[in-house]
Design a protein around this nucleic acid. Structure first.
Length: 228
DNA sequence: GCGACAG
DNA sequence: ATCTTGTCGC
């Protein structure tokens, strides 16, 4: 666990202010609603950094609900921003969008690794990507960014709400496997909590991570070897 | 003022 | 995210 973080270079306050504004503008375009129809294809995506200055973005598409891998693509580009809590999307989304365009089989919904509305300004990378692609998205994160919750029971399938200080629902904390740290699931764009949670559970195959994210992670590792 | 802080 | 060995528990 990251109890202590070594002090990194202080991000430019003017840049942070500007990006925060852009984030608020994007937020006005988000829509939380149930899926129009059951998905036939669900995508997973992941970002990794082969070197400090290059980002490798991966997209995988699985047939739903069989979860068989249909397609996998990647794109390597330059890193343009350091990691800043709350502004993750500005660092990873640009390159992810390029990778997305390489997909021949477009998905009906995307499971993003990171948060959806469970974000300080309700605009985590899942919501951000959803708006820019105008496609349904939801986030599945391994760590909490914001919100309060009670530890869910240690058995697979246990769920407890993630809320803000006023009690509004931000997402759900889900135990995806017995006795492993829970996942933080929240809707991004054109999706609601029930859908995000239902699809996450439907994508579990005995591992902590649901298949879209797990396979995206796996292929990111493979592609990393391939590009050297 | 102090602590928290996705990937 | 990334670096990086052995080790504890189911």
């Amino acid at each position: 666990m990251a109890y202590y973080r070594p002090p990194g270079p202080a991000p430019d306050p003017l840049l942070v202010r500007e990006l925060t504004h852009q984030q608020d503008a994007l937020r006005t375009r988000t829509r939380l609603e149930p899926l129009a129809q059951e998905p036939q294809f669900i995508a997973g995506c992941d970002s990794s950094f082969p070197t400090p200055e290059t980002v490798l973005s991966v997209f995988v598409v699985l047939r739903f609900p069989s979860l068989e891998l249909v397609e996998k693509v990647y794109h390597v580009g330059p890193v343009t921003l350091p990691y800043i809590p709350g502004l993750l999307a500005f660092r990873e989304a640009p390159n992810l969008l390029v990778a997305y365009e390489k997909l021949r089989q477009k998905p009906d919904i995307i499971m993003v690794d990171g948060h959806g509305i469970a974000h300080p300004r309700r605009m985590g990378i899942a919501a951000h990507l959803g708006v820019e692609l105008d496609l349904p998205t939801f986030g599945v994160a391994k760590q909490r960014l914001t919100g309060l919750y009670a530890e869910p029971a240690l058995t697979k399938g246990s769920i407890s709400p993630l809320t803000d200080k006023q009690g509004a629902l931000l997402g759900e904390v889900i135990r995806s496997k017995d006795k492993v740290n829970p996942l933080f699931v929240s809707p991004g764009h054109r999706c609601d909590q029930a859908t995000a949670t239902r699809l996450t559970l439907a994508c579990l195959r005995g591992y902590k991570l649901p298949e879209p994210t797990r396979l995206a992670d796996h292929w990111a590792e493979e592609f990393k070897k391939e590009i050297r």
